[in-house]
Design a binder for these strands. Sequence first.
DNA 1: CTGACCGCC
DNA 2: GGCGGTCAG
Length: 265
Amino acid sequence: MRKLTLKMHFNYNKPVFTFLVVLAFFVSYGFFYKTTNSAKALPLETPRLQEGETYLHHLAYGFVYNETHEQAKWIAYCLTKKEASGIIERSDNFEEDPLVKSGTATDGDYAKSGYDRGHLAPAADMRWSIQSMEESFYYSNMSPQLPAFNRGIWKKLEEKVRDWAVALDSILIVTGPILSPNLPTIGANKVSIPAYYFKAVVDFKGPKSKGIAFVFPNQGSKLPLMEFAISINELEKLTNIDFFYQIEDKLESTVESTVCKTCWP
DNA sequence: CTGACCGCC
DNA sequence: GGCGGTCAG
């Protein structure tokens, strides 16, 4: 009798059940698509490398790791409007990067050092997938930043750049420390403490391509962001890195040689 | 002031 | 998870 009741119950609800299964499928598919199907071609091909450097890439970004300074020399990725609008929560799970076979910095290097584990590629730019979020917490993406810098003007720039990704649909971003010999270090792995950081942003679409770069000292500042803006050419002289030689032909020379501060609201 | 992000312990 | 710094609105 009980079995019959259950059977009738099931039969009675079968259309509802079927509907729920189909609904669940589409909801999960939508979630899966939105959060994981954003794999993208990296903006840069294999770059020129110096001694002690390796070029690697994760799903979300490519980077050159510098073994001497125990951190990335630069990190590059394209950020789209859709990605900048991601919903994945911050993981806060710092890990050594499995791709860097020579080893990265560790928890111990930064602990009680007085320096923040500052993201080069911001966690908030990686909210479009669980994997990209986790990648942003690899120590290959960390650099010792003074808290007043990381939580202040550096964060302000990151938020501005995210706004640009949304407003312009997609942009190319290159970020890094300015590494030089004999920097002070933290931890047993001797992670260099950079004196300056840079960020270059290129809007590479259409006839109105434009580029802008920023260089900040590793310290807090109350000055407006645009006080730190320079052209990409100037940044390349400063860092001695030719960032965009692979796509130079696609960029108008003015993208690198000039900076239009009012073109980037 | 609140919320968003950046972190620390 | 609780707490604090910094900034925008």
